[in-house]
Amino acid sequence: MLNTVPPHLEGLLRSGCLATGVDGAGLSILATSGAREPLYATDDLATQIERLQLTLGEGPCVDSSNTSSPVLIPDLADPQDPVASRWPVFRAEANRLGARAIFAFPINIGAIGLGAVDLYRLSPGPLTDPQLSSALTTVDRVGLAVLEAPDQYDDPSAPAMTSMVVHQAAGMVMAQLDSSIQEAMVRLRAAAFAENRTVNELAADVVNGHRHLAKETE
Rank of each mutant, 00 (worst) to 15 (best):
T32H: 04
S15D: 05
G113L: 04
A84R: 03
L202P: 07
L39I: 09
G171M: 13
I102K: 09
L188S: 08
G209A: 05
S85T: 12
A184P: 02
S157L: 15
S123H: 01
G34D: 02
Q168V: 04
L147Y: 01
M161V: 14
A99Y: 04
A41M: 09
P74Q: 06
L213A: 09
A84T: 03
D151R: 15
A92S: 02
H212I: 01
T162C: 09
A46T: 01
A25W: 10
G57R: 04
L27F: 04
E37S: 13
E58R: 13
G26S: 12
L27V: 10
D129I: 15
D154G: 14
E218I: 05
N196L: 02
P38I: 08
G59H: 08
S133L: 14
H212R: 12
E50M: 07
L97F: 07
L12Y: 03
A204R: 07
D140I: 07
D43L: 03
L45V: 01
A41E: 06
T128V: 14
G34V: 07
R197F: 06
Q53M: 00
A191S: 11
G34M: 00
N200W: 07
L18H: 10
A104T: 11
A158Q: 10
P74V: 02
L119R: 09
R36F: 09
S64T: 10
D81S: 07
R14M: 04
K215F: 14
L144T: 06
D178R: 08
L27Q: 02
F90V: 00
V165G: 05
L54F: 12
S64P: 10
R51T: 12
L45K: 01
P156K: 10
V173S: 02
M161W: 13
A175E: 05
D81A: 12
M174Y: 00
P126T: 09
R86I: 11
G21Q: 09
D23A: 14
A111G: 10
A191W: 15
A92C: 08
E58H: 11
R211G: 00
L2R: 12
P82Q: 09
A184D: 00
D178H: 13
V165Q: 01
E201L: 11
M172K: 12
G125L: 06
S68Y: 13
A104H: 04
G115C: 02
R86T: 13
Q152F: 15
S123N: 10
L97V: 08
D43E: 09
I73P: 02
N196S: 13
G57M: 09
L147N: 02
D205F: 13
G21R: 10
R211Q: 02
Y120F: 04
L72T: 01
R91V: 02
S28C: 05
M1N: 12
D178W: 03
R96G: 08
Y120K: 04
